[in-house]
Lab assay of single mutants.
Amino acid sequence: MQFKLIINGKTLKGEITLEAVDAAEAEKKFKQYANDNGIDGEWTYDDATKTFTVTE
């Protein structure tokens, strides 16, 4: 399945997509990506659109 991450950071904004088996795997990958890029914020997930959002 394809999942999307919307980044609303203080210095980094944008979207990325990835393939994952389920939402838990996608969340783990997205949070690792955010951590690697210094993004720390409030996370939400919309199951209907398979979209994660992180807002700093």
Rank of each mutant, 00 (worst) to 15 (best):
E27Q: 08
I7R: 01
D22E: 07
Y33M: 07
Q32G: 08
D40G: 11
G9E: 03
N35A: 12
T49K: 06
G9W: 15
Q32W: 07
K10I: 11
A24D: 10
E15N: 04
I7V: 08
T53P: 00
V54A: 06
T44M: 06
L12P: 01
K29T: 11
A48K: 10
L5F: 12
T17M: 06
D46A: 14
Q2C: 04
A34Y: 02
I16L: 10
D46L: 09
G38V: 04
E42K: 12
E56A: 03
E27A: 06
K50M: 09
A20R: 09
G9Y: 08
I39L: 09
A23N: 02
V54S: 02
E42C: 05
I16S: 08
K10N: 12
T55Q: 04
F30A: 12
K50E: 11
N8D: 14
D22L: 03
K29N: 07
D22H: 10
D36P: 02
K13N: 15
V54N: 02
E15R: 03
E27K: 05
F30Q: 00
I7S: 06
K10Y: 15
K31L: 12
A20S: 11
E25N: 14
T44H: 14
E15D: 08
K50G: 05
K10E: 15
Y45K: 04
T17V: 07
E25F: 12
K28D: 08
E42N: 13
M1V: 09
T44S: 14
A48G: 10
K28Q: 13
K29L: 07
F30M: 04
F30Y: 04
M1N: 08
L18W: 08
T44C: 05
F3N: 00
G9H: 15
L5R: 00
T51H: 11
G38S: 05
K4D: 04
V21I: 05
Y33R: 03
D46M: 09
K4N: 13
A20T: 07
A34L: 03
D47N: 14
A34D: 00
K29I: 12
V21K: 13
Q2G: 06
G38M: 14
G38N: 12
K4W: 06
F3T: 00
T11C: 05
E56R: 01
T53S: 05
T49I: 12
K31R: 06
E15I: 02
L12N: 06
G41W: 13
D36A: 07
K31I: 09
G38I: 05
F30V: 14
Y45S: 03
N35H: 15
T53W: 09
G14H: 15
E19G: 11
E15T: 05
K50C: 03
I39V: 14
A20D: 10
Y33G: 03
D36H: 14
K31Y: 13
N8Q: 12
E19M: 09
G38A: 14
K10L: 10
T51Q: 13
E56I: 04
L12T: 13
E19F: 09
E56W: 05
Q2V: 08
M1R: 13
E56P: 02
K28P: 08
L12R: 02
T44R: 13
A34T: 12
N8S: 07
T51A: 03
A26Q: 00
N37H: 07
T51R: 10
F30I: 02
A34W: 02
N8A: 06
D46C: 04
A23Y: 14
N35I: 04
K10G: 11
I16Y: 08
K13S: 13
A20N: 08
L12C: 03
Y45M: 03
G41P: 02
Y45A: 02
K4H: 12
V21S: 15
T44A: 14
L12W: 15
I6L: 10
T55N: 12
K10H: 06
M1D: 08
K50Y: 13
E27D: 13
F3D: 00
E19Y: 14
F52P: 00
L18I: 12
Y33L: 09
N35E: 14
I16M: 14
L5Y: 01
A23D: 09
A23H: 03
A23Q: 07
G41D: 01
A20K: 03
K28H: 13
K50S: 15
D22T: 07
T49G: 10
G9I: 13
T51C: 04
L18D: 06
V21Y: 08
E27W: 07
L18R: 11
L5S: 00
Q2F: 09
M1T: 11
K29Q: 10
A20W: 04
F3V: 01
I39P: 02
M1G: 14
I6P: 00
D22F: 07
E42A: 08
K50L: 14
E15Y: 03
I6H: 06
K29W: 08
G14K: 12
F3M: 02
K50V: 06
T17S: 13
L5M: 14
D22N: 15
G41Y: 01
G41Q: 01
A26E: 00
T55G: 02
I7G: 03
K4T: 11
N35W: 06
T44F: 10
Q2A: 05
D40W: 11
I16D: 08
E25L: 10
N35Q: 11
F30N: 01
I7Y: 15
N37I: 11
W43H: 01
Q2S: 03
G14I: 12
A34K: 01
G14M: 06
M1I: 10
G38P: 02
K50R: 09
T55V: 09
I16T: 04
Y45T: 02
A20H: 08
L5T: 01
D22A: 11
I7N: 02
V54I: 12
E19R: 06
A24N: 11
D40P: 07
I7W: 09
K50H: 13
K31G: 03
G38T: 12
A24V: 15
D22G: 09
G41M: 02
K13Q: 12
K50I: 13
V54M: 06
F30K: 00
G14W: 07
N37M: 10
I16H: 15
K10Q: 14
T53H: 05
F30S: 13
Q32H: 11
